[in-house]
Every structure is written in structure tokens, then in C-alpha cells.
Design a protein around this nucleic acid. Structure first.
Length: 546
RNA sequence: GCCCCCGUAGCUCAGGGGAUAGAGCAACGGUUUCCUAAACCGCAGGUCGCAGGUUCGAAUCCUGCCGGGGGCACCA
């Protein structure tokens, strides 16, 4: 629209642009509503090229744009901003769009046709999921929902690390417990070790008396299976289910690791030094090359990553996203280098999302966690303390770039300052109005909806909030930032509560039902839908009553 | 020493180059004959860590410094 207006000015000889008319003009929704419904800074950007004063250019543009249907006003403001106002009925129409789209409102085709692999949590099955992993469970799952909403074909994947030294330590810790001995120096402690060891012993009464290698093997296999089942169950209770549980062991047993290394060999990315086989990651920005096969012939950890990445690509994933904690940020450059070594594009085919840590406080003091001593705060502990909804919301509400301090006492006792209730309460209130309307037999079908009746300031605020949901959802998916949805919901809930305080929706007493009541009910219905859609993206429930 | 993240109101944090930097909590003062007061309204609170640079315009982008957190294996 603005492009054609510019073109018209040029055609009429009122404007000359040496570089031609831009094909794209950035239009944004201003933060302050006094600046209209849409605003553009195009005049500021083009003024220099056109040799005009920005305000004059903006004024000319405004004159052309104001003639457009659906534009109620075009104003020049500040140094040369152009603010556009949408006619009231066009704005009110948003509510009808929302109800027509229903649960799909906000859906986009941003990633249509793309297969996305989203790997997250991937905690080792050597203990319960601890608090750090829970953040990725909440954020990762929500990101999965967002990407699906943005049209991607998403596979949630859990990389199940059942190969290597940590599992060995786990098995030895179980053996020690089964024999009533102290946990090994480098092992795991804690109540869960004893419980799992006891479970295995119940199944295999003679396990403690077997020779070490056999006993360790039994405990490893059974213990890992039990631990894994427990992790899966607690994630499920948290509302997080994975499509694929990928076992690292399979990569080693199927020859996938050898194939990945052979592939890199063909590409000339490998060399031998000091009896080990190295990958030239430093050619692609890594600090130094990495050992893939150790001098003792054992595969180094990265070999599993190589094979795993290749496997994902061979399974047809266009984008592989991996969520990692800040303690793994050192892997980013080597993983990206690995991606490049395969001839792929880092940042597109492989993307690593680094999130900061979660710290727990009790009585204002940091809680020290130690796997050795078994002082872990698990997913169940957190959920037991504050509930699934509050936990998921609290963990998703902040940018993953910032560490969060969760004060357990605060979250457990004073739920009042928890924003999740603010949003959920809005949903309950909305549902309540709709229930009451149904009881009164008021029909608010769209055939009778007159969007022009929604002309109160607070109705406008609310409509603008509803209109911005699709953009918020796709932006959150694009930036991999679910917290934007939470913040959006808080803004929208606030707009609704403010509307509710001044705009009566249902008729009072013997009052007749008017089209204003019906129009407001459409708005309420639409708001409920948007809040429900948003909460759904976070995996938080939308209660009908509170 | 090198790498990553952060530094915005008393506290916890939003703010992907724009207009007067926002919200919740905490503090203070109001609002309920009627749709859920877990709400609303008002008031107050700021050198956006510091210094340069780019730009018509910087909390936002670049460089340096200071402060906090995390990480730098032929461990996994």
C-alpha cells in the first residue's frame, strides 16, 4: 500500500528517487497508541535520497494514503513518522477472525515444509532429572509447540546417553549399594541409587554375589532401564513427551560412528597425529582440532555427536536444533565446525541454543547440589513444591539468556506474585462471562456481529492486543524465544482486565440485550480463544474456573 | 590468558535502530448493591555499568574497560 503510494508520488513527478521505489517498506505497530495503529519511518529513510525534508515527504504520502479504504487517518508526527489509523469496524473485525480461526488463530506458514529436529533435555540416565534439565523441558517443549504452530514438522528428540564412563560410574555406584558399600569416589550417591539397586536386587537376588563384571553389567542394564523409565514418566507428568528417544549406544553398535568418520575422511577433514585421529575443526573456526578416535582406539565423545548429526540429516531433517546448558557452551564452536566439515551450513542446518542456569534458593541461600551426595532437586521436587503450571510458566517466562534464581519458599508459599495466576485468572474470568451469557440464552453468533460497536478505548486496546498475537507467535518461533508468549499473555490479560473494569459485557437486571452486548461477547469469546492459544503454546492449562 | 551470557526502577525482569525507556512485586492512596477484587484506578520511583564510535536518531549495533555468572581435556 505504501509502496504503491510512493510509486504514485513518483509517477506524478512529486518525488524522485535515484534508487527507485523500495519494494519493501517496514511498517510497525507503535508501542504508544497515540501513534496510531501502524507507523512507518519510510519518510525519514528516503528523505535524504529524495533531497526532501522528511516531514514534507511524509505529508505528501499521508495525503495519498488517507484516500485508501480502511484507513481512517494518516498523520505526520515527530521528525517525519507517518502514523496510520485503521477504521473502527476494520479493527473490530479482528475478533471475528479470531473466532473463525479458533485454535488455529496465530498459526503461520513460516516453516512450512521444513522438517525440524528439536533435541532437548537429553539428561544422562544416571539420576533423576534435576532442576537444570527442567528448564529445557519447559522451554524446549514450548519451542516445539511454537515451531509446530509456525508450520514446521517438528520431531522432539531425547539423546539418551547410555554409553561411556558416566554410565560406568552409575553401574559401579549401584553395585556398591547392592553390596552395602560406600559409593565409589567418582560415583553417584543419594537415595535414588539405593532404591534402584534394591529394585534390581529384588529382580536378580544373586546380583551382589556375582563376579564384578557380570554384576556391573546386570546393574547397568537394569538400572539404566529403570532410571530411564522414571525420567520418561516424570517428563510425561510435566506435559513433555518425546517422539524419539535416541540411544547413543545404537550409533556405536550399528557402525554409524565408523560411517560418519569414513565420510569425513572422504571429504579430507581427518588426519592422524600421535596415534589418534583428528578432525580439522580449526578450519571452521574452532580453537583447535578435536580428537575423534583416541590413541587407544576408543571413540572419543565427539564421534557420537558426528554420527548423531549425520543420522539426523539422513533422516531428512532440514534443521537440527539442540538445546544446551551454559556449561556446554564450549561445544558450540566445535559442533558448528563439525557441521561445516560435513558441508552443511552452521546456523541453518545445525543450531545450538545455549541457555543459562537455574539456581535454587531456600531461605535466600543458594542450594548446593551435588550428584555425589545425592542432594539434587529433581523435577518432582519442583513440581511438588509449586505445581506443573507454575513451574512451566516460571521457567518459560524469562529469556534463556538470563540465569534464573528460583526461591523455593517464595514460589511455594506466596503464589500471589506469580504471573501465571494473573493470566489464568483472566481466562477463568472470560470463561465465566461466556458461561453466564449461555445461561442467559444470549446468542453472539458472528452473523449478527457489528464490529463498529467496539469503539471504547479499552476495546481498542484489547483488539490491538488480539491482532498482534500471530506476529508474537511467529516471532517467538523464529527467535526461539518462548518467553515472548508469556509476556504477551500478561499484556493481553492486563488489557482484558482493564476492559472488564469499565465495559459491562452482559446486560444487568432487566436490561434488554443489545448489539453492544453481543459485540462485546464476541470480543470476550475471541480474547478467551487467544489466551487459551497462548497458554497452550506454553503447555500451561487454561482453567475455566479458579 | 581465551570463549559465551548478563549488567535497565528498592527487588525480579521486558524492551530484535525510532517518538515521553515499560511491567510485575514491594511502598503509599483509592475502587465491590450487578459479568470471578487472584481484579481495577491513581501516586511514586531511572546517569539503561563506564568511556568512545557508527547513525538524522542508540538501552538496542561496533570497540575498549569495569563488575557478576559459566566454560575452556586423547572426560562424558
Amino acid at each position: 500500500m505504501i509502496v504503491s503510494a510512493l510509486q504514485r508520488l513518483v509517477d506524478e513527478g512529486r518525488l524522485s528517487l535515484p534508487d527507485g521505489v523500495p519494494t519493501q517498506v517496514r511498517v510497525e505497530r507503535p508501542k504508544v497508541k497515540e501513534h496510531g495503529d501502524y507507523a512507518t519511518n519510510i519518510a525519514l529513510q528516503l528523505a535524504k535520497k529524495a533531497g526532501l525534508n522528511p516531514r514534507d515527504l511524509a505529508t505528501d504520502l499521508a495525503g495519498v494514503l488517507a484516500e485508501h479504504d480502511g484507513v481512517s487517518a494518516a498523520e505526520v508526527a515527530g521528525p517525519g513518522f507517518l502514523n496510520l489509523r485503521v477504521a473502527a469496524d476494520a479493527q473490530g473485525q479482528v475478533a471475528a477472525h479470531v473466532l473463525q480461526a479458533g485454535a488455529d488463530y496465530g498459526h503461520s506458514e513460516l516453516y512450512a515444509g521444513q522438517k525440524v529436529n528439536l533435541e532437548f533435555v537429553s539428561a544422562n540416565p544416571t539420576g533423576p532429572i534435576h532442576i537444570g534439565g527442567v528448564r529445557w523441558a519447559a522451554v524446549g517443549d514450548s519451542l516445539g509447540r511454537l515451531l509446530t504452530f509456525a508450520g514446521a514438522d517438528v520431531t522432539r528428540e531425547y539423546y539418551f546417553n547410555d554409553h561411556g564412563a558416566q554410565i560406568d560410574r552409575f553401574a559401579r555406584s549401584l553395585l556398591a549399594s547392592a553390596r552395602g558399600q560406600e559409593a565409589p569416589e567418582d560415583g553417584y550417591g543419594g537415595q535414588y541409587i539405593h532404591e534402584i539397586a534394591a529394585d534390581v536386587v529384588a529382580k536378580h537376588p544373586d546380583v551382589a554375589s556375582l563376579p564384578d563384571p557380570e554384576a556391573t553389567e546386570v546393574l547397568r542394564a537394569e538400572g539404566v532401564a529403570l532410571m530411564f523409565a522414571e525420567i520418561k514418566a516424570s517428563l510425561h507428568d510435566f506435559g513433555v513427551d518425546f517422539d524419539v528417544y535416541f540411544h547413543e549406544n545404537d550409533l556405536h553398535e550399528s557402525g554409524a560412528v565408523e560411517r560418519a568418520i569414513a565420510r569425513l575422511d572422504e571429504l579430507g577433514k581427518m588426519y592422524e597425529k600421535d596415534g589418534a585421529r583428528w578432525l580439522r575443526t580449526s578450519d571452521y573456526g574452532d580453537d583447535k582440532d578435536r580428537v575423534v578416535v583416541k590413541s587407544d582406539g576408543q571413540a572419543a565423545y565427539i564421534s557420537g555427536d558426528l554420527a548423531y548429526y549425520l543420522d539426523k540429516r539422513e533422516r531428512g531433517f532440514d534443521r537440527c536444533l539442540i538445546m544446551l546448558g551454559a556449561d556446554h557452551h564450549g561445544y558450540v564452536s566445535r559442533m558448528m565446525a563439525m557441521c561445516a566439515a560435513f558441508g552443511d551450513e552452521p546456523g541453518v542446518n545445525l543450531e545450538l541454543l545455549i541457555g543459562q542456569m537455574v539456581n535454587l534458593l531456600r531461605d535466600g541461600e543458594p542450594l548446593r547440589m551435588s550428584k555425589r551426595n545425592g542432594t539434587v532437586i529433581s523435577l518432582e521436587d519442583l513440581v511438588g513444591a509449586i505445581g506443573v503450571d507454575a513451574a512451566r510458566y516460571a521457567l518459560s517466562r524469562y529469556s534463556t539468556d538470563s540465569p534464573i534464581d528460583l526461591d523455593l519458599d517464595l514460589w511455594a508459599s506466596t503464589t500471589n506474585d506469580n504471573p501465571v495466576y494473573y493470566v489464568q485468572y483472566a481466562h477463568a474470568r472470560l470463561s465465566s462471562i461466556l458461561r453466564n451469557a449461555a445461561d442467559l440464552g444470549i446468542d453472539h453468533g458472528l452473523d449478527r456481529f457489528d464490529p463498529g460497536l467496539l469503539e471504547h478505548e479499552k476495546e481498542g486496546d484489547l483488539l490491538r492486543a488480539l491482532a498482534s498475537f500471530p506476529e508474537v507467535a511467529s516471532r517467538a518461533a523464529e527467535l526461539r524465544e518462548p518467553h515472548r508468549v508469556a509476556r504477551y499473555l500478561e499484556r493481553t490479560a492486563a488489557a482484558f482486565h482493564a476492559f472488564y473494569a469499565v465495559c459491562r459485557v452482559l446486560p444487568q437486571g432487566d436490561e434488554d440485550v443489545t448489539d453492544v452486548h453481543r459485540a462485546r461477547l464476541v470480543l470476550v469469546d475471541a480474547t478467551r480463544q487467544v489466551v487459551a492459544n497462548g497458554l497452550g503454546l506454553l503447555g500451561v492449562s487454561a482453567p475455566e474456573r479458579m
